[in-house]
Design a protein around this nucleic acid. Structure first.
Lengths: 248, 248
DNA sequence: GGTAGGGTTTCGCTGAGCGGAAGGAGGCTC
DNA sequence: GAGCCTCCTTCCGCTCAGCGAAACCCTACC
């Protein structure tokens, strides 16, 4: 940046990125002041940059005065090759599961110490589902997360087991208990959760193998597992097989 | 921008946006030189800016050296409220159509003089489909496009009918003929295309009404229409009704 | 080993960018 | 209706971040 900056060395580009990064699932609309605060940029500077971003349709301004992410970023973002091959291959299989179960279906990969949701198809029922395409959730309390964790490198398991934040009163926060579960996940080929992420929601998930490596996980979220579990596991495993086979 | 610019008055922000805008469906991966050329920025300048964008994960660099859109832009872009309400409401209905027909299903709105595809579910068959979520296609040679055009304001119709570029040898390029079809679309409540956008692909589409206004269109793409047409029209109309009802 | 295509680094000039200060605009309280 | 608060917007003079031509590097191809 030129001139009079309070913190020389911070480039215009990085400020622009900071402004864009101020948005997340919980902050889809921000006032100028919030935007400036979250991006750690003085308000007048934010104002100037944001005006340019609005002119370029990277942001948009709501009638209320709040800023939201704009059309331009939406369609540029969709061009990102984030596991594009996996998503394309998996889509029809996810449809099949969705059609067969009517439940919410997920496709996720491990991104560091979190589960990154690549795809979601909403179910009909009123089961609460917090996942969003593009967002991440913890590995230790989601179905797909447990699968990904069970097949993650040791250092990831160590880090995650070292800190198991409680989300609901059923979240597993004892490393020993979770470690047992992970062993069972590897042995049985599926993972389950019971209201560990959100009350009223249970899940089943299975790994997607490419060769001898787990590259993703698919799962469903339902209100209760009960005797449906075997049926769901089979449906998921068939789909996961299909995806894995198509990936080579 | 500071200093020695060849074209003073062009801001850093606008250059960054130009770089991001250099990507489109047909250019998902670009070399530095292409990127610079398409964004109309000198190569060294592009290099500097792009390096910062890569550092911020807004772009990523392929092992081959090409640049692609990065994770950061992907998940920020997904936060854009581009017809979010419509998309959320429509999703389950689109699933139903997809399950019932096994064809490629589309949800589109009119964006100026083009059809903007908000959602797509791929069919099983090998029918060629060029649409992409987030991309636009002409109004005059797609199923959803004809529906949207038939219910567009006069000035849009005039502009579009004034220039009907040929895409395939079946594309309708005579304004009079298309005008007749649009009348029929309004009368019958559905539109069809026959290899007008891509050879080997036909489509049917219906309007989605909110009150007395057409806010979107849903359609399917199949290899051939033949006697399936009535069945597809009914399926689409049922879904469109449902979407419209849910929109109030 | 010449040529062409990319990618990267250098470097001195300079105006784009900076942001404190001040000035609206709206809303809420007393 | 005065006082207060919060958020948005504009102003303006200082100055260093940004600029890009030029030069250089590297790989590929003939």
């Amino acid at each position: 940046m030129a001139g009079n900056s309070a913190r020389p060395g911070v480039s215009v580009t990085s400020r622009v990125l900071a402004l864009l990064g101020a948005f997340d699932e919980r902050h889809r609309a921000l006032t100028l002041t919030d935007l400036a605060r979250r991006a750690d940029v003085p308000v007048p500077t934010a104002h100037r940059l944001v005006r340019e971003l609005v002119a370029g349709d990277a942001l948009a301004r709501r009638p209320s005065g709040e800023y939201v992410v704009g059309r331009r970023l939406w369609d540029v973002g969709l061009l990102a090759p984030v596991e594009a091959g996996l998503r394309r291959v998996a889509e029809p299989f996810l449809h099949d599961i969705h059609a067969a179960t009517r439940a919410t279906v997920h496709l996720a990969v491990r991104d560091g110490d979190e589960a990154l949701y690549l795809e979601r198809m909403s179910g009909r029922s009123s089961v609460p589902v917090v996942s969003q395409i593009g967002s991440t959730l913890p590995l230790h309390c989601t179905g797909v997360g447990k699968v990904l964790l069970a097949h993650a490198p040791d250092e990831v398991q160590v880090r995650v087991l070292g800190s198991l934040p409680r989300v609901t009163r059923y979240t597993i926060t004892q490393p020993g208990l979770l470690r047992q579960q992970l062993t069972r996940v590897r042995r049985d080929g599926f993972a389950t959760t019971t209201e560990e992420m959100s009350l009223g929601a249970c899940s089943v998930a299975v790994p997607v193998w490419r060769g001898d490596e787990v590259v993703a996980s698919i799962g469903v979220v339902v209100g209760a597992l009960k005797r449906d579990r075997p049926r769901l596991v089979v449906a998921l495993q068939v789909a996961a097989q299909g995806i894995g086979r198509s990936l080579r």
